[in-house]
């Protein structure tokens, strides 16, 4: 935690270093979040059932999507891009020379603090939607939602780490982080709307279901225990694969020319 805190401090200092950049990023981040929500709020009056989900239930899902997207944009995406650049330019040397877990150091290389606005909006949207539905989640439902949400974050990080592993061999793959963000947008919809291979991918390979659908279901009290256990198992499996992949990839690091 002390390393995460110290690195977060550096990122905040870097964000504060340039006044114009700081405020413009803040305004843009807020606008971007609102632009994502407003059409949903407009559409909610005209939308019928989607794969069994009512309009305000979809809003709970959208709230979770914003929370997940915020975690990705705040913590994971900046670190992925920074680490891919480090690998490309050979400056990963200095990260690897620090006496701490190399993967942890890479995953806290950079942060984008302004993306926290999405988190606040996401929590707000979840609360508003639950109020509109008239459902007050029990403590068990909230806990389950957090547990499955945490599993979703673990899965998200595992996929990020696997992308880093690829970038050790194919060194100009910063676009992968952008691609992942684009794929995450499918998480705005319940996984039940997808069929066949796409559904399998979003349940197990890039498990958007664990990141957004299941946490929303847990809050709405419709998540089955078996699904919760499967979600945790999938996240754990991806985490193990990512960790092994990372260890193997580190051996192929060639640094860059002096």
């Amino acid at each position: 935690m002390r390393i995460i805190g110290a690195q977060l401090r550096i990122s905040c200092l870097a964000a504060l270093q340039y006044r114009v950049g700081f405020w413009s990023e803040g305004v843009l981040s807020l606008l971007w979040s609102l632009v994502g929500i407003v059409p949903l709020l407009v559409a909610v009056d005209h939308q019928g059932l989607v794969a069994g989900w009512g309009a305000w239930q979809l809003m709970v899902l959208s709230g979770w999507f914003l929370i997940c997207s915020s975690i990705f944009g705040f913590f994971l995406e900046p670190s992925l891009i920074a680490t891919m650049n480090h690998i490309r330019h050979g400056t990963l040397d200095y990260v690897l020379l620090r006496p701490a877990d190399a993967l942890l150091l890479c995953l806290v290389t950079d942060f984008a603090p302004w993306r926290a606005t999405e988190f606040v909006l996401g929590v707000g949207l979840v609360c508003l939607s639950l109020w509109k539905i008239g459902h007050v989640p029990s403590l068990g439902e909230i806990t389950t939602s957090f547990v499955v949400g945490a599993s979703g974050v673990v899965a998200l990080y595992a996929i990020g780490v696997l992308m880093l592993c690829i970038s050790f061999r194919a060194i100009r793959l910063q676009n992968l982080a952008v691609l992942l963000e684009s794929i995450l947008n499918f998480g705005r919809w319940p996984v039940h709307v997808f069929q066949g291979v796409l559904k399998a991918i979003f349940m197990y390979a890039i498990p958007l279901a664990i990141m957004t659908t299941y946490p929303a279901q847990a809050l709405l009290g419709t998540l089955e225990v078996a699904t919760l256990l499967a979600a945790m198992g999938t996240a754990l499996g991806l985490a193990v694969v990512a960790r092994v992949g990372w260890r193997l990839s580190l051996r192929t690091y060639a640094s860059a020319s002096s």
Binding site: A6, R9, A14, Y18, G90, Y94, R98, P99, S258
Partner: peptide, 22 residues
């Protein structure tokens, strides 16, 4: 030919980061 210091920040901020990490 490589640097560990954060480009946009004063060096003393990287010193502080190293204090924590080490």
């Amino acid at each position: 030919q490589k640097r560990q210091l954060s480009w946009d920040l004063p060096a003393v901020d990287t010193f502080e980061l190293n204090r924590v990490v080490f």
